[in-house]
Design a protein around this nucleic acid. Structure first.
Lengths: 183, 183
DNA sequence: TCGTTACCGAACACAGTGTTCAATTACATT
DNA sequence: AATGTAATTGAACACTGTGTTCGGTAACGA
């Protein structure tokens, strides 16, 4: 990849990140992004088809850091947390999110973020799916598996939103407890 | 209220309803609404400050029919369903929603509907709050009451969305069962 | 060094929003 | 039925934001 491409791409991502910490995604304009990144308008559209695609690629990079790391560490320690690996997975996820490397939490707490929540949900669903232990109880309760999976994912997301909305006063451990109690 | 006002207001609501069955709220333009309602642009803005306020007032009328009726019937039969009034309330709500009088379900299933979900959630929260029986278990589980209430509301909404998304094949009774099982 | 490629920037067409205003029409009241 | 009031019209307007175009410039990789 051309060095120039890398630079502008990074500049756009940086400007985008900075803007995300200030305002909702939907209120951010392309004009603001290219001003912040100091690139031409045409350059932006040479890199990203629309603003939505920028978010999409932004999320992919973001989730790559979060969910892939989660999957890896999960695999690595699976034998340790075998008895309740699900607990460790979600705890790690909450801990990771609390670090707030990028502005993932701003995205989560802001309204009008269906796009982002969609991407987040997809990744989370894949993670949930790989932890079959939780699905055992689905059969006990005689629920459709799709319903049960959806419930876990949306409960996690809602828990996260609640946590952020209330200032993240609780520790990741406590939130994980709450989450597991209601699930 | 002037007859002309009532007529245009109704015409706008009708056009809005018709459009909602075809496309997402955010994709609907003021131009389309006034074309459908056959009113002047200035007239629209004389009635509604913005498109968002149109949705707001639309929701208020809609929820008036649903939640108020629910509260009334709830009060009326409270002594009958005393032992598990919560069950009856949510069942009635699901039944009512399945009728789909207006396009409430289209609004629910479409993306980018944070505004609508917000109004819906507020009404639902008030309803949940008035049924204290559910909160008993919150203390047992030692969860923050705000967390617990939020969980019930969002689980109901997510259940509803799941139901709609999957074609509403299940009966209201079955969905109520699912809902109560996971809660 | 040289051909390629990204970037610039300014202009452009387009769509949608919300406002303004004078002219018109329907309304409620007497 | 007459009258003053108030809603509606329609067309124009300024404004913001989107996405495209294109010739010129400069950085890049080989």
């Amino acid at each position: 990849m051309d060095r120039r491409q890398r630079k502008t791409r990074e500049a756009i991502f940086n400007a985008f990140t900075k803007l995300l910490s200030k305002k909702d995604f939907n209120r951010i304009t392309v004009g603001e992004i290219i001003d912040g990144a100091d690139v031409g308008r045409a350059t932006f559209y040479a890199h990203f088809e629309t603003k939505d695609y920028l978010l999409k690629e932004f999320c992919e990079e973001l989730f790559c850091h979060i969910f892939d790391a989660e999957n890896d560490s999960g695999h690595g320690h699976r034998h340790i947390f075998d008895c309740d690996s699900s607990k460790s997975v979600f705890l790690h996820l909450f801990q990771h999110l609390k670090k707030n490397d990028n502005n993932i939490l701003n995205l989560l707490s802001s309204p009008n973020n269906e796009l982002f929540l969609g991407y987040f949900g997809n990744n989370l669903e894949a993670l949930v799916e790989s932890h079959l232990s939780l699905f055992e109880s689905a059969k006990e309760k005689e629920l459709p598996p799709g319903f049960w999976k959806n419930h876990i994912v949306s409960t996690f997301t809602e828990t996260l939103k609640w946590w952020v909305r209330n200032g993240m006063k609780e520790s990741a451990e406590v939130i994980t407890e709450y989450f597991l109690k209601v699930v």
